[in-house]
Design a protein around this nucleic acid. Structure first.
Lengths: 123, 123
DNA sequence: TTGACATCCGTGCGGTTACACGGTCATTAT
DNA sequence: ATAATGACCGTGTAACCGCACGGATGTCAA
């Protein structure tokens, strides 16, 4: 099942090859988007974008999810450096990390959400 | 394992609840982002954004992937309505669909890619 | 018509991922 | 000190997903 050896449009193929996404860049992009591509994580990030700071229990309360669920989600987000923690007593507060990608916040979270709300164009 | 009944910051919880993402909106957002969160699909969409139109074989050639792989990827993208097809003889050309979300194209594809390239801030 | 080709489709398998459970640490109150 | 609480961690399991394989469809060439 080798790719055929007769490019139909060699010029476009060359352009796609040179200006396209490398496998490495795609990998980084995907590992980032994968973190957003989960209901709990997306809602957590969106909530933190709205109210700045929340602790685990309150987050679970606000989302109507189990603490286990948000705990697991926060584990991944924290590992990826997308959120930071502030510990006060036995309560741990979360907020969006300083290294949180601005375009991701501005466009992917806000704009995409707005769009998704407007267009009921889904399965 | 019920959420505790003592919100630490009741005001923020209320705000996160009212202005936050509903489960349904999150579901739609996630089903969209999930389509981007794959190396092959992301590279296909990016390539189509660059060169307008490509057939399956040329796409596989440009990405250095098997035709099976891009065939499967296109199957999902087509089902979701993100790409459209134009058939010429036995060759099928793909391009970004008319319903392709503009913010997704502008920001998620282009800006995020640029950012991901610049910042080696990943696992 | 016969054969070769580009693509699509259904299916099974392997790897990944989300989630629930039990145990542990640190902190606060009695 | 003991008990209770908020959160973390490691592990097992079940579901999901990408992908390869085989076969089917439609098209061009001889």
């Amino acid at each position: 099942m080798e790719p055929h050896e007769h490019p139909v449009d060699a010029e476009r193929v060359a352009r796609a090859r040179s200006r396209g996404l490398s496998a490495e860049d795609a990998g980084r992009l995907v590992s980032l988007l994968s973190l957003l591509a989960d209901p709990v994580r997306a809602r957590i990030l969106y909530a933190l974008d709205e109210v700045e700071e929340l602790c685990v229990g309150d987050l679970a309360l606000a989302l109507g999810a189990t603490e286990d669920s948000v705990g697991y989600a926060l584990r991944l987000l924290r590992t990826a450096g997308l959120v930071t923690t502030r510990k006060s007593g036995r309560v741990v507060f979360y907020r969006l990390g300083p290294g949180f990608p601005a375009p991701l916040r501005e466009h992917c979270l806000r704009q995409l959400v707005a769009m998704t709300r407007a267009e009921p164009d889904d399965d």
